[in-house]
Simulated assay, not measured.
Amino acid sequence: MNIHTIKGFPIFLEKLLESFEKNKNTNEIYQQIEIPLFFGQFDTNIKGDINNGIRFFDKEKSPYYSLYENGEVVKNGEVTLKEFQKIFMSYLEEQYSKQ
Protein backbone atom coordinates (compact mmCIF):
# COMPACT_ATOMS: atom_id res chain seq x y z
CA MET A 1 0.00 0.00 0.00
CA ASN A 2 1.30 3.43 -0.89
CA ILE A 3 0.44 6.11 1.64
CA HIS A 4 1.30 9.56 0.32
CA THR A 5 3.15 12.18 2.32
CA ILE A 6 0.76 14.12 4.50
CA LYS A 7 0.72 17.75 3.41
CA GLY A 8 2.13 19.98 6.10
CA PHE A 9 3.82 17.23 8.07
CA PRO A 10 7.34 17.93 6.73
CA ILE A 11 6.87 21.58 7.72
CA PHE A 12 5.82 20.50 11.20
CA LEU A 13 8.94 18.34 11.57
CA GLU A 14 11.18 21.13 10.29
CA LYS A 15 9.74 23.59 12.84
CA LEU A 16 10.00 21.00 15.60
CA LEU A 17 13.67 20.36 14.86
CA GLU A 18 14.41 24.09 14.67
CA SER A 19 12.88 24.64 18.09
CA PHE A 20 14.80 21.74 19.63
CA GLU A 21 17.98 23.31 18.31
CA LYS A 22 17.01 26.54 20.07
CA ASN A 23 16.13 24.58 23.27
CA LYS A 24 12.50 25.67 23.36
CA ASN A 25 9.80 24.07 25.45
CA THR A 26 7.64 21.52 23.57
CA ASN A 27 4.42 23.35 24.52
CA GLU A 28 5.89 26.52 23.04
CA ILE A 29 6.53 24.61 19.80
CA TYR A 30 2.94 23.43 19.46
CA GLN A 31 1.59 26.92 20.11
CA GLN A 32 3.67 28.34 17.27
CA ILE A 33 2.84 25.68 14.67
CA GLU A 34 -0.51 25.42 12.96
CA ILE A 35 -1.08 21.69 12.56
CA PRO A 36 -3.19 20.84 9.49
CA LEU A 37 -6.49 19.00 9.85
CA PHE A 38 -6.85 15.79 7.87
CA PHE A 39 -9.89 14.90 5.79
CA GLY A 40 -8.84 11.42 4.68
CA GLN A 41 -6.51 9.17 2.77
CA PHE A 42 -7.64 6.82 0.02
CA ASP A 43 -6.86 5.33 -3.36
CA THR A 44 -9.25 5.36 -6.28
CA ASN A 45 -9.90 3.44 -9.46
CA ILE A 46 -9.80 4.94 -12.95
CA LYS A 47 -13.39 6.22 -12.55
CA GLY A 48 -12.53 8.04 -9.32
CA ASP A 49 -14.40 5.65 -7.05
CA ILE A 50 -12.70 4.98 -3.70
CA ASN A 51 -11.15 1.51 -3.46
CA ASN A 52 -9.57 1.59 0.00
CA GLY A 53 -9.19 4.28 2.61
CA ILE A 54 -10.94 6.64 4.94
CA ARG A 55 -12.69 9.94 4.25
CA PHE A 56 -14.39 12.67 6.28
CA PHE A 57 -17.53 14.32 4.87
CA ASP A 58 -18.15 17.80 6.26
CA LYS A 59 -21.95 17.90 6.11
CA GLU A 60 -23.43 20.92 7.88
CA LYS A 61 -26.04 19.08 9.97
CA SER A 62 -24.38 15.71 10.46
CA PRO A 63 -20.69 15.36 9.53
CA TYR A 64 -19.49 11.79 9.22
CA TYR A 65 -16.68 9.55 8.00
CA SER A 66 -16.63 6.41 5.87
CA LEU A 67 -14.12 3.58 5.85
CA TYR A 68 -13.66 1.75 2.53
CA GLU A 69 -12.30 -1.70 1.71
CA ASN A 70 -12.25 -3.17 -1.79
CA GLY A 71 -14.59 -0.50 -3.14
CA GLU A 72 -17.22 -0.98 -0.44
CA VAL A 73 -18.11 1.16 2.57
CA VAL A 74 -17.45 -1.07 5.57
CA LYS A 75 -18.06 1.50 8.30
CA ASN A 76 -19.74 4.89 8.73
CA GLY A 77 -19.84 7.07 11.78
CA GLU A 78 -21.08 10.52 12.74
CA VAL A 79 -18.15 12.57 14.05
CA THR A 80 -16.89 16.11 14.16
CA LEU A 81 -13.75 17.03 12.25
CA LYS A 82 -11.88 17.22 15.56
CA GLU A 83 -13.02 13.69 16.54
CA PHE A 84 -12.09 12.42 13.08
CA GLN A 85 -8.43 13.35 13.65
CA LYS A 86 -8.03 10.56 16.25
CA ILE A 87 -9.87 8.05 14.05
CA PHE A 88 -7.71 9.03 11.08
CA MET A 89 -4.45 8.62 13.01
CA SER A 90 -5.57 5.21 14.34
CA TYR A 91 -6.41 4.18 10.77
CA LEU A 92 -2.95 5.18 9.54
CA GLU A 93 -1.24 3.35 12.41
CA GLU A 94 -3.21 0.21 11.55
CA GLN A 95 -2.32 0.49 7.86
CA TYR A 96 1.39 0.95 8.60
CA SER A 97 1.40 -2.00 11.01
CA LYS A 98 0.12 -4.26 8.20
CA GLN A 99 3.16 -3.49 6.04
Rank of each mutant, 00 (worst) to 15 (best):
G77K: 05
G71D: 03
G40V: 02
T44Q: 14
I29E: 05
S90P: 00
K15Q: 14
L13D: 06
Y96T: 03
G40C: 04
N27A: 10
I6M: 09
K61N: 15
F57H: 13
K15N: 15
F9P: 00
F12S: 05
K24S: 09
Y68L: 04
Y65I: 02
F56D: 07
Q32S: 15
F56H: 07
K75D: 06
I87D: 03
K47H: 10
V73Q: 02
K86R: 06
G40Q: 06
E28K: 07
K22V: 02
F57L: 10
K59V: 11
G48H: 07
E83L: 04
E78L: 04
F56M: 09
E94L: 08
N45S: 11
G77P: 00
L81Q: 13
N51F: 10
K15V: 09
S19R: 11
I11F: 15
I29W: 04
S19T: 10
G40S: 07
K75H: 06
K24I: 02
G71M: 03
L81I: 12
N76K: 13
G53N: 09
E78T: 12
E69K: 14
E94I: 00
I29C: 06
I6F: 05
N23K: 01
K24G: 02
E93V: 06
P10Y: 07
E14P: 02
K22H: 04
I33Y: 01
I29A: 06
I50G: 09
P63Q: 09
F12I: 15
L13P: 01
F42M: 05
D49H: 13
P63V: 11
K61C: 04
P10A: 07
V73I: 15
M1T: 15
I29F: 12
Y91T: 01
G53L: 06
Y91Q: 00
N25K: 09
Q85R: 00
E72F: 05
N51S: 08
L92P: 01
V79H: 07
Q85V: 01
I87T: 07
K82N: 05
K86S: 13
N25E: 08
G71K: 03
N45D: 15
F20P: 00
K24D: 11
L67R: 06
E60C: 04
E28Q: 13
N27P: 01
N27V: 04
L92R: 01
I33K: 01
E18R: 12
F57K: 09
Y65G: 01
P36F: 10
L17Y: 12
H4A: 14
N23Q: 00
Q99H: 10
I46H: 08
K24W: 06
H4S: 14
Y30D: 01
E78H: 12
E93Q: 08
Y96F: 14
L81F: 03
V79A: 03
R55E: 08
E28N: 12
P10F: 06
Q85D: 05
E28H: 07
L92Q: 02
D58F: 03
Q31C: 05
N23V: 00
E28S: 14
F38I: 07
L81M: 07
Q41T: 10
Q85L: 03
R55V: 08
S62L: 13
I35A: 06
T44I: 15
K24R: 12
